[in-house]
Design a binder for these strands. Structure first.
Lengths: 334, 334
DNA sequence: TTGTAAGCGTTATCAT
DNA sequence: ATGATAACGCTTACAA
């Protein structure tokens, strides 16, 4: 019922705790005979080291915290999977936290993770917690940022070039002859939203197309907002001929609205989305997207974090900033 | 740089550690003056309790482990989100483990989580680790099973009635006049696969339709297997007129293959899938499915686990077995 | 009301 | 080669 302890192992073997620890961790000196006795006792009692005690004594918990908006999305599962893949290879466990972009939740999780002595953090931060993060980093917490950078925080940051991605998408739409191009943006204030919007704007400007307020619909990354936004877009006297949607989840909402209204794609309206979900090829019609290398982002994030964790023990290392370039995947929706 | 300790707080306040602990945890007696002094010291040093030390002393870590096949799927993110939602409400953190149905990984994670002293486990187990799980439960580890039950293990188990779900789907297909109905099964040996296959068989039998080996394609839950399976199905001289697919990810593969081959759905072939992904409504054509209450499963699993954890401290409670009934969602693919 | 001290299960530094 | 023993940071029983 109760977990056996090292002390019990030692007693069983007729030796001391110190001896047992040495044998099990392979350091210091011990005779072959002692080794055998300890190992037998371990076997007999089915002893397992207590990670908690080890963590209290030593310096690391072999746990890393991951703060994302929500795992129930298209982007996050692959990202988290990648992080876990590289982390587990080095014996790290992953503590998953869903923040919903809520600063209160973010702070609470951050505080709790700090109290739990995680070895490091991978965070996709909302603007409200920038200062808190800085404080944690100053306190020595290894941190890697994903998807969004924090001004003035010199830690590894893995992002996607959202502006370029949006720019490519909208430019492509323009090259197809579109002039009335709508955008459904992400949550206001979030860096990715702003950059995608900037790319949209830039493409329009470069082609001498004036910005039309009516074509800018503010979304929040969630499905229903995009669904409603498309409704509003379609109700205008001068309908757009194309729509750029700022993330996968909203793409679903937009497509749904279009389907219900019986709008023919791409004949009556073209659409392209940011983020390339699994379902894009089997959508009606196959959905054109801006693809970001999600798994690679997770991999890089965790690799960099592991490096930071090492560095925290040895000496500082310059923070690497990686900005991945997204691709256009043109299918049949535009 | 270093985390301040309770001892330092006490010193700063000119009191003892015992005092500080009492104030911070609100038990025993202390004067208003002492309370103030401690709180001020806490504030000044920005003290945070050390969860590790607390866990070593006390009995729980406020962490639960979740073992699933992979978070990068359609089903898992919602499930995990639900678990985290109810767990976090009670201050539990969630450690996420991807096993890929690999018994070795499962055992390693289980062992590591045990060493880490998690307070409980939510597991979707492969058959190979049934014995190991039994051992853990005997050792006092609170456990809840999801999606699959383990024979002879008396712990709360939240499942879906996979047989009924498949039965309903295939019966519906038959009611539409289909006689040559294919199935793409899940991974062999996994309980959900077997039950879905059983439902398929039962529907056929009840309607006097003989089982045709050629129409039974063994999949493994992954996309490519289903893609290939559809190819094989289509290459037969006597093509099926309908297909039942055993999970969401394979549905994607099947739909993709059908699309590439230019098969008209539902005119030339009907298809229905187990699991109702987000994209079902915007697929081409809108995809009919068997819907399972994923979020509810996660909620129930975690609620039951929390109850088990309580019970482990106080006294045993009879294990609840919950089997959720899935619904048919008929859209346009059959 | 307050302080002291004994654990919790390890690791690692001392002596021996 | 081996055994005591002092941390690690906290909780809590016991004294004062």
């Amino acid at each position: 019922m109760k977990k056996p302890t090292l002390k019990e192992v030692a007693k069983e073997a007729g030796l001391s705790v110190g001896m047992a620890s040495r044998v099990l961790n392979g350091y210091g000196g011990f005779s072959e005979e002692s080794r055998k006795k300890i190992l037998e006792a371990v076997e007999k009692l089915d002893y397992r080291p207590n990670t908690i005690a080890r963590a209290l004594k030593g310096k690391h918990t072999k746990a890393i915290g991951v703060l994302i908006s929500t795992i129930a999305s298209v982007f996050s599962p692959t990202l988290v999977r990648a992080i876990e893949d590289v982390g587990s290879r080095s014996g790290y466990h992953l503590i998953l936290c869903n923040t919903d972009e809520d600063p209160t939740k973010e702070q609470e999780y951050l505080a709790a993770l700090y109290e739990r002595n995680v070895d490091g953090l991978i965070v996709s931060p909302s603007p409200k917690i920038h200062n808190y993060l800085k404080k944690m980093v100053k306190g020595g917490m290894p941190l890697v940022l994903i998807d969004r950078s924090v001004h003035g925080l010199n830690v590894p940051t893995i992002t996607v070039d959202n502006e370029i991605g949006a720019y490519k998408a909208v430019t492509y739409l323009i090259s197809q002859g579109h002039k009335r191009i709508a955008i459904i943006t992400g949550l206001k204030g979030i860096m990715t939203s702003e950059h995608r919007f900037a790319g949209y704007k830039k493409a329009l400007e470069e082609n001498g197309i004036p910005l039309d307020e009516n074509l800018i619909q503010v979304g929040d990354f969630r499905r229903d907002k995009a669904y409603d936004a498309v409704g509003r877009l379609l109700d205008q006297k001068k309908r757009p001929t194309a729509i750029f949607v700022s993330n996968e989840t909203m793409s679903l909402g937009a497509l749904l609205a279009l389907e219900e209204r019986g709008v023919k794609i791409p004949e009556q309206l073209s659409i392209i989305g940011f983020g390339d979900p699994d379902w894009a090829p089997i959508a009606n019609p196959p959905f054109s997207t801006v693809r970001q290398p999600t798994y690679a982002i997770g991999t890089l994030a965790c690799e960099n974090l592991l490096r930071e964790i090492m560095a925290a023990e040895r000496g500082k290392i310059p923070a690497e900033n990686i900005c991945m370039k997204p691709d256009l995947v043109i299918r049949k929706s535009c």
